[in-house]
C-alpha cells in the first residue's frame, strides 16, 4: 500500500513541477494561465488521493474514513472553484486590454 501512496504522490509532485515550470517559462500572461489551471486540477487530485489513501489504510477506523472523505471534499471544492478563479483573472486581463503574445512579438524580442 505504501508503494501506491508513493507513486501517487510522485505523480502529483510531477504535475506540480511541470505546472510551476510552465508558469515561469511561458512568455505571456494568457499562456501562463494554462499551466496554472493544470496545477490546481491534476497535481492536487493525485497528491490528495495519495494522502487520502495513506490515511485510509494506515489505521482503518471511522475517523480515517471521514478524514479521507473530507480530503476528497477539498479536491471537489478546488475542482469547482479553480476554473472560476482562472476565468476571473482572465476576464480582468481581457478587460484591461492586455493583448495576447504573438509570433511577431517573438521576432520583435529577438531583434
Amino acid at each position: 500500500m505504501n508503494i501506491v501512496v508513493t507513486v501517487l504522490l510522485a505523480a502529483g509532485l510531477f504535475f506540480f513541477l511541470v505546472g510551476i515550470i510552465g508558469i515561469i517559462r511561458f512568455p505571456d500572461f494568457y499562456s501562463r494561465m494554462h499551466p496554472a489551471g493544470m496545477l490546481d486540477t491534476m497535481g492536487l487530485l493525485l497528491s490528495m488521493l495519495a494522502i487520502a489513501v495513506y490515511i485510509l489504510f494506515d489505521h482503518f477506523s471511522y475517523l480515517s474514513v471521514f478524514s479521507s472523505l473530507k480530503i476528497l471534499l477539498i479536491v471537489i471544492f478546488v475542482y469547482i472553484t479553480s476554473p472560476i478563479a482562472s476565468h476571473a483573472i482572465m476576464d480582468a486581463g481581457v478587460r484591461a486590454g492586455l493583448q495576447p503574445w504573438t509570433r511577431e512579438d517573438l521576432t520583435k524580442e529577438e531583434t
Binding site: F29, R32, G43, I51
Partner: peptide
Amino acid sequence: SILDRLVGANAIGSLTIPLLLL
C-alpha cells in the same frame, strides 16, 4: 504585470493545500 503576480499568488495558494496536509 499585476495579473502575472496574481497567477503566482494563485499557484502558491494551490501549493499550500497539499503542503498543509503533508
